[in-house]
Design a protein around this nucleic acid. Structure first.
Length: 851
RNA sequence: GCGGGCGUGGUGGAACGGUAGACACAAGCGACUUAAAAUCGCUAGGGCAUGGCCCGUGCGGGUUCGAUUCCCGCCGCCCGCACCA
């Protein structure tokens, strides 16, 4: 008899699906739609096992929804602009475009054998002129709608990648890709007005019931809404135009504890002072030199310089507070100026001690007893405290109550107003790189900055460039850069900055609904397909990509490219865990770590040995890394075991949101199991056994499996669904039921496995004489009548501990059960002749005797 | 520092407040075989006086007839943010 042979059956069924256009999204808009999307990959040239897990998850959903009668859209494309292509070109002398398209071809070739149900007819790469040309059209519409503007600003400069970065792309003061320490630089840049949407983006999170709470929380923190008071101090002896200094505070209740005012080195007043004060100029220059990395900030001393200017306290004009320029005040938060309250702020306390400023108490613990001079008193705002210098409200109140009362009092007395501020800054989109979407504007001597005319789109990247010199090749490409002004026709120059690659991925989900449209979207298509019903991707995009996409959906509604109903582009979000692998390490004579490939290590009783017997040190469940030699290559796995085994394994063993460790033994076991299923089914297909007494039991088992696996898939409990399929397979294999019932059970098994192991499932379906492709077969529905048991086994507890069990007819009355329970020897023994205090019978579940 | 999450056998993990450890890995024993591989079967939380009993879901308390699950306080690990006024 033949064996389970994935190398034969997998290409066969892939060809069958292709031929039948099984996974092409239908134009039939009468069917309910389901849009499932996996985050598209960067075309590095190799798919990795993490992609396999990610795409298998969306594939399970897609195939399940297709079988459940939905018109499914499950597209795939490539996030194809970005630095790696330029780096490769610089290192190896090729062209970023050639490198990228070659990689895309290679990756598609590696993806197809996995059997994912992508609608490949909709595929695009963001570096296709057809895509980025529409992105340029979108840019022009957003520019016209006032959603994009240009300004001179301090920006994050990555000296290695030689480009500007958005705030979201700076991690611990380093570039998110290069890891280089980010510098501050002043440049004229294009910005998206994402901060105008701060409130909406924050409020919108509340409606995202099917997003992980963690992601919503991270976004909420990033947006960072705070409520406070903005008011002005009037100055004494300040330069012209600075008779007031605006400050923002979230603690107006401590205003009477103010002992100084601090301004940012970038504050307009500091800038005026540095012009004719050498001391100020030196100090400010020193501040700007300071890095922004975590370590540096941690170590950096809080430094200030007394400007000699003073301000009057708004509630007691006889009090004058000194104005310091301080290195820890950020110009781009609040007003770039604060009042210092050393009594109730750790940082201000440190500053006050250093410069000998007074420390004034505003409140104390209700029970008293605090030495504000020694240590600042900074309780939670929700805690009740006793105010010793009260602005408004009760003497004893919480910080929150006091802040509200203080804001109201200040407003009533004409001292400032309550305002809401956000931490979220506008998104700088200009990048000084070649391999990105050109920003479609030109600079004309007479007209200024002019949007390119839409009929000139796409503004295509020139191919004839060289990457051998640092910097942006567009800057030194005269025939591309020089152009005619779209407004007056005079000679002008193109903008040579390109767009941040996060722009490309901020609207690709919308483009997939009409990937060949000659406008960014086709509203009718977008109206039918949007929003994405299920999005699957990594948690690492919790802020960047997911926040930008939410902004873009809103911007596209404003510019008429999406229907108003799709402000939230992703209805449900699932963040999958990684696939990890053990690291095997020895130490060289020089003391350096040496990493060994898994195939060179033999495992025995949990220890690993090299061929020569040397024991290796094992780090379990580590992130895969080429330098640690612990990468699993999907291509190798497919050659060895077939795609179905790889798909089955990455879904089993761990909940999908958690990491799963790839082990050779686990993959082998998965493969063995699939071979066992194949064998069992091929036997059943050829058997001819008449009905037996076990028929009913197997039929019931089948319907229970249908119920449990369906529930598992719907709730993303893939590991639990697979565990259930193991159990069902074992039951089927061991059952002595007749062939007719066994065939029904095997057909159900094939269908329940089909989202995970689609090729094997088609093969099983064919062996069992199923109709057409299993991919199109309607999903089985559990028969309620078959789920009802005739008899139930009730555990009997005494005082909450299980002592016995009792099998009774399912419809037995409580009274009867109670009688049987009390007569049970184990219960009699436990009660020892005494009457039970209480008897709890939960029908169909459990009995508890309270002795 | 602030915010969030997680602690269950040798391992990954399962368990609407209702029989803790499903399912799988690793391990051990056995069958088949000249042998090995493959396959199949069995054992398996810990302990003990083993037809039975005791302990057990990080630790300590609480709510409940009943807690891995809910509440409070610790301990440990992981993640996010962080001079944000």
């Amino acid at each position: 008899m033949s064996r389970y042979d994935p190398a034969t059956i997998e290409p066969k069924w892939q060809a069958a699906w292709d031929k039948a256009l099984t996974f092409k999204a239908s134009d039939d808009k009468t069917r309910p739609k389901y849009y499932v999307l996996s985050m598209f990959p960067y075309p590095s040239g190799r798919i990795h096992i993490g992609h396999v897990r990610n795409y298998t998850m969306s594939d399970v959903i897609a195939r399940y929804k297709l079988a459940s009668g939905h018109n499914v859209l499950h597209p795939m494309g490539f996030d194809a602009f970005g630095m790696p292509a330029e780096n490769a070109a610089m290192a190896n002398g090729g062209h970023p475009k050639d490198w990228t398209y070659t990689n895309i071809g290679d990756m598609v070739e590696q993806m197809k054998p996995m059997g994912w149900s992508f609608d490949w007819s909709r595929m695009f790469a963001t570096c296709d002129p057809e895509y980025y040309g529409q992105q340029q059209a979108l840019f022009l519409d957003m520019l016209e709608a006032g959603l994009i503007y240009r300004k001179n600003a301090m920006v994050n400069w990555d000296p290695v990648d030689m480009t500007v970065l958005a705030n979201e792309q700076v991690e611990n003061g380093r570039g998110w890709r290069s890891g280089a320490l980010v510098e501050r630089k002043e440049l004229t840049q294009w910005f998206f007005r994402i901060s105008d949407f701060s409130d909406e983006l924050l409020e919108g999170l509340d409606g995202l019931d099917d997003w992980p709470a963690k992601v919503k929380l991270m976004q909420a923190n990033w947006i960072g809404r705070s409520r406070g008071l903005q008011f002005a101090f009037s100055t004494v002896d300040a330069p012209d135009g600075f008779d007031r200094i605006d400050v923002y505070t979230t603690r107006p209740d401590t205003l009477l504890g103010a002992s100084f005012v601090g301004i940012s080195p970038d504050h307009p007043l500091a800038r005026v002072l540095e012009r004719d004060n050498a001391e100020v100029a030196a100090f400010v220059a020193d501040c700007r030199r300071m890095g922004t990395s975590e370590e540096e900030l941690e170590k950096a001393e809080k430094k200030g310089l007394d400007t000699g200017i003073t301000v009057r306290h708004p509630f007691d004009t006889s009090v004058e507070l000194p104005v310091y320029i301080a290195n820890f005040i950020l110009m781009d938060y609040g007003t770039g100026a604060i009042f210092g309250c050393p009594g109730h702020d750790a940082r201000d306390h440190e500053f006050a001690i250093k410069y000998g400023l007074p420390i004034v108490e505003s409140f104390e613990p209700v029970e008293g007893g605090i030495d504000i001079a020694a240590e600042p008193f900074v309780p939670q705002k929700s805690e009740k405290v006793r105010y010793t210098r009260l602005i408004a409200g009760a003497e004893i109140q919480t910080g929150e109550e006091a802040v509200d009362a203080a804001v109201a009092f200040c407003e009533a007395n004409g001292v400032g107003q309550g305002v809401t501020k956000y931490r979220l800054r506008d998104w700088g989109l200009s990048r000084q790189r070649y391999w990105g979407c050109p920003i479609p504007v030109v600079h004309c001597d007479s007209c200024g900055t002019v949007p390119e005319a839409k009929e000139n789109l796409p503004i295509e990247l020139p191919y004839d460039i060289t990457m051998d010199k640092p910097g942006n090749p567009l800057d030194r490409h005269p025939t591309w850069r020089d152009c005619a002004c779209p407004s007056c026709g005079a000679p002008a120059v193109r903008e040579t900055d390109t767009m941040d690659t996060f722009v490309d991925s901020s609207w690709y989900y919308a483009r997939f609904t009409a990937p060949r449209a000659t406008t960014p979207t086709d509203l009718a298509e977008a109206d039918y397909w949007m929003t994405v019903d299920q999005y699957v991707g990594g948690i690492e995009h919790a802020i960047l990509h997911l926040l930008y996409s939410r902004f873009f959906a809103r911007a596209m509604i404003q510019t008429g490219h999406l229907p108003a109903t799709s402000a939230e582009p992703f209805k449900a979000l699932f963040t999958q865990g990684m696939v990890t692998h053990a690291i095997y390490q020895t130490t060289s004579d020089e003391g350096r770590p040496v990493y060994h490939y898994p195939e060179t290590v033999t495992l025995k009783d949990g220890n690993g040995y090299l061929d020569d017997g040397t024991e290796v040190q094992i780090t379990p469940s580590a992130k895969m890394s080429k330098s640690k030699n612990n990468v699993v290559d999907p291509v190798v796995i497919v050659d060895q075991y077939g795609a179905d085994t790889a798909r089955w394994f990455v879904l089993s063993d761990s909940p999908p949101e958690r990491d799963v460790e790839w082990t050779a033994s686990g993959a082998e076991a998965a493969n063995r199991h699939l071979a066992r299923v194949w064998r069992t089914v091929s036997e059943i297909a050829q058997a001819d056994v008449p009905a037996t007494a076990e028929d009913d039991a197997l039929a019931r088992e089948t319907h229970k499996a249908i119920r449990d696996v369906t529930l598992g898939i719907e709730s993303f409990g893939f590991n639990a669904a697979i565990a259930r399929l193991y159990a069902f397979t074992n039951a089927l294999t061991k059952s002595r039921a007749g062939t007719a019932v066994k065939r029904d059970a095997a057909r159900a098994l094939a269908q329940l496995m089909s989202p995970m192991t689609p090729h094997l499932a088609e093969e099983m379906w064919q062996m069992l004489g199923g109709d057409g492709l299993i991919a199109n077969a309607p999903w089985p529905v559990a028969d309620e009548a078959m789920l009802v048991e005739d008899s139930v086994t009730l555990p009997i507890q005494v005082n909450g501990k299980r002592r016995a069990e009792l099998t009774v007819p399912a419809d037995m009355l409580k009274d009867e059960i109670e009688k049987l329970v009390l007569a049970h020897p184990a219960v009699e023994r436990a009660l020892n002749g005494a009457a039970p205090k209480k008897l709890i019978v939960v029908p169909g579940r459990i009995v508890n005797v309270v002795a």
